[in-house]
Amino acid sequence: MACVSPDGKPTESGAKMLRALRAGSKFPEEVAQETGLPLFRVRSGLRELSQADLVVEKTGKYEITDKGTALV
């Protein structure tokens, strides 16, 4: 996992994405712009964060969950 460590905590890039979502839900393109990470990394990272219940996707936008907020 590139964005979530085996212990369930976000990696550095995962935490960057979570912090970018603290202010509100965003499209992957907006997260990429804010974090400076390549779009492909953001898309795959958000997918991983979603599988770990740290973010949730609603109609293309991602928002941070309470579990995600507690980790950053």
């Binding site: 996992m1 779009l39 492909f40 990394r41 795959s44 990272g45 997918r47 991983e48």
Partner: peptide, 13 residues
């Protein structure tokens, strides 16, 4: 080496 990637992650580039 950057995690699980799909071809579609590169769409638009």
């Amino acid at each position: 080496t950057h995690g699980m990637l799909k071809l579609e992650d590169f769409k638009g580039s």
